[in-house]
């Protein structure tokens, strides 16, 4: 009787442990594969993203005729008709390959070029998204732009995710009788 009861339980335990083992093997293979992919392509991907963002930026600048973002704190023109908050964010992180290069760079000291490139691409993306949000909402200009950078996890806590959040925000302003205002309406 006891044997009959315990057999399915033992079977279940074996099944679960095989499942865990398979998952472990899959994870090891997947991690290695992705790490190799990162080593081969992640620098190229970052560069491509930078080029794409620069193109989008050029388009937006052409549409506005100037850079709509500025960090003037005051609404300096008196003919503003409407204003409101506009913001955009991006969570951007280096690949494990970049982190490894960064770790080696840490030993030598000095500038770590690749990490700098990753973060500045992320920041360019966030500011470009802010411009696009402003365009979408029909603002003529964005004043008092601030760009915050914050780590996703506390610095002293080891975390799975190594990334920063870049958050850009400002005040969109619409002016009386501006061309952009008219073209959107």
């Amino acid at each position: 009787m006891v044997r009959q009861m315990s057999e399915p339980i033992i079977g279940l335990l074996i099944g679960v442990s095989i499942l865990i083992a398979i998952l472990g093997i899959l994870w090891t293979l997947l991690f290695t594969g992705m790490f190799v992919y990162a080593a081969l392509f992640s620098t190229k991907n970052i560069e491509n993203k930078g080029v794409e963002v620069a193109q989008r930026e050029a388009q937006t600048l052409q549409k506005f005729g100037k850079d709509p973002l500025s960090n003037i704190r005051k609404q300096y023109r008196q003919d503003g008709t409407d204003s409101g908050l506009v913001y955009a964010n991006v969570v951007y992180g280096p690949s494990y390959w970049h982190l490894m290069i960064g770790w080696f760079g840490n030993l030598v000291g000095g500038q770590i070029n690749i990490l700098h490139k990753v973060i500045s691409t992320g920041r360019a993306l966030a500011t470009q998204r802010l411009r696009e949000q402003a365009e979408l909402a029909g603002w003529d200009e964005v004043l008092n732009v601030r760009i915050d950078t914050s780590a996703l996890a506390p610095i002293n806590v080891p975390s799975r995710v190594k990334a920063v959040e870049i958050f850009a925000y400002g005040t969109g302003v619409k002016y009386k009788g501006s061309e952009i205002n008219n073209s959107i309406k």
Partner: peptide, 23 residues
């Protein structure tokens, strides 16, 4: 999923959305 994407690097869309919603 975001942890996997983190190995390759680049934008982590799940977290971008999360922080946007929270904000």
């Amino acid at each position: 999923f975001a942890g996997l994407k983190n190995i390759v690097g680049g934008e982590l869309t799940a977290y971008t959305e999360l922080l946007d919603e929270s904000r």
